[in-house]
């Protein structure tokens, strides 16, 4: 069953045709990687799925419903984005993780330590000031903050960039475990093709704002894919 369907999405940003009629279908519970050269539209696609930007034409369906017919807040709590740039909100790591649940009136049900661990970070970080963390730590706080919303679809924009190489595989492992346990659908943007091969069920190769090919990870040949 497909959970998210993108149909002929087009988006012009400034004078760049970021999406040029992109179509893609996501199965519920799958982990799909998006690879492709810089500027191929990966970030733009994730932002459109989170409805931070409006498509010029084409449409996106979440569980059969056009996202333009949904309440944006409702959509963003189900299809959750971890953006390419992790922006920390004022305050501690704990306050950052609780930000979403608090707005949803569910702060009582939010286990900050659990979220941090699922994002590959020690619960000891909870009391630290978020703005002062390193880039890789911020990345993981941003992930924990997203997990706290109990998403159905997780949109990860280069989640391990800036993370200490020795911790990357561990982070991949925790994300995978969490996603499989919760039955999450994950869209994982990466430039690291070996990573895509490690983590995903399928890999979509983007170029010039369209999906060039989608293959099962086992069948994906990345020589010359870019």
């Amino acid at each position: 069953m497909s959970i998210l369907t993108i149909k002929k999405a087009k988006k012009l940003l400034g004078d760049a045709r970021a999406l040029r009629g992109l179509s893609l279908d996501l199965e519920k519970g799958e982990i799909i990687s998006l690879v492709g050269p810089s500027g191929s539209g990966k970030t733009t696609l994730l932002r459109a799925m989170n409805r931070l930007i409006e498509l010029d034409s084409g449409s996106i369906f979440f569980q059969g419903e056009n996202i333009t017919d949904m309440d944006p807040v409702d959509l963003r709590r189900k299809v959750v984005l971890v953006p390419q740039e992790s922006v920390m909100l004022q305050g501690t790591v704990k306050e950052n993780v609780q930000y979403g649940p608090k707005l949803a009136g569910a702060v009582g049900k939010c286990d900050v330590g659990r979220c941090l661990m699922d994002a590959g970070l020690s619960p000891k970080f909870a009391g630290k000031e978020a703005g002062k963390l390193s880039g890789g730590e911020k990345k993981r706080v941003a992930l924990a903050r997203a997990l706290a919303l109990h998403p159905e679809v997780l949109l990860l924009d280069e989640p391990t960039v800036g993370v200490d190489p020795r911790k990357v595989e561990r982070m991949e492992g925790t994300i995978l475990k969490f996603a499989r346990d919760a039955g999450l659908t994950v869209v994982w943007v990466t430039h690291d093709v070996p990573q895509a091969l490690r983590v995903s069920d399928r890999i979509a190769n983007l170029k010039n704002g369209v999906v060039k090919e989608v293959k099962k990870a086992a069948e994906f040949r990345w020589e010359g894919a870019y």
Binding site: R76, V87, L89, L149
Partner: peptide, 9 residues
């Protein structure tokens, strides 16, 4: 944008 993305109105 981060706030909106986390479900803020």
């Amino acid at each position: 944008e981060t706030m909106l993305s986390l479900g803020a109105t």
